[in-house]
């Protein structure tokens, strides 16, 4: 039990708040807990998902009927990100410069595992409909 939950229950026991208020507070607390779409940016969220999934389902207007099913272990993604440490600093600068030229202000050298956790903890389910032809889904499981 977290400290916040304990406090709410203590306040309820001391009759400082009503049952309804306690319920509201607990549900608000529940929605901001790790794994429930935390957006607090603390980076301390523990990812409950094991895999990142990408699926492509052909839509009615799909000419090729391509079906794609990709499952990547989260640990593999994290392990892959660590390879970025081996990229020479001058090469990182070149990458960042090329990205900035394309209008993307992003520094790869600053990616940390916590940042990845933040991104993934907010990636509940993303669906991209490509021109009504194919349906691309990116989600965690």
């Amino acid at each position: 039990m977290t400290e916040e939950r304990k406090k709410i229950l203590e306040m309820l026991a001391e009759k400082k708040i009503s049952v309804d208020e306690a319920e509201r507070l607990l549900s608000a607390l529940g929605s901001s807990e790790p794994g429930n779409g935390s957006a607090d940016g603390s980076g301390a969220a523990k990812i409950p998902w094991k895999y990142l999934r990408v699926t492509v389902e052909p839509g009615p207007g799909s000419p090729s009927g391509d079906k794609v099913n990709i499952r990547v272990p989260m640990k593999l993604i994290r392990a892959g990100l660590k390879w970025a440490a081996l990229i020479p600093k001058n090469a990182q600068g070149e990458v960042n410069k090329a990205l900035q030229e394309k209008g993307i202000d992003f520094d790869f050298s600053k990616i940390k595992p916590e940042d990845l956790n933040d991104i993934l903890s907010n990636l509940d389910e993303l669906v991209v409909d490509v021109d009504g032809k194919d349906k691309v889904r990116v989600f965690c499981e």
């Binding site: 090729s64 794609v68 099913n69 990709i70 272990p73 994290r78 660590k82 081996l86």
Partner: peptide
Amino acid sequence: ALLLVYPLAFSVLWNLGGLHVETKNA
């Protein structure tokens, strides 16, 4: 930092289990 290749390579190989890539069309 080149010596990091060893733990990093081991880490990638160790976590490769469960990787699934499937593409299909007509």
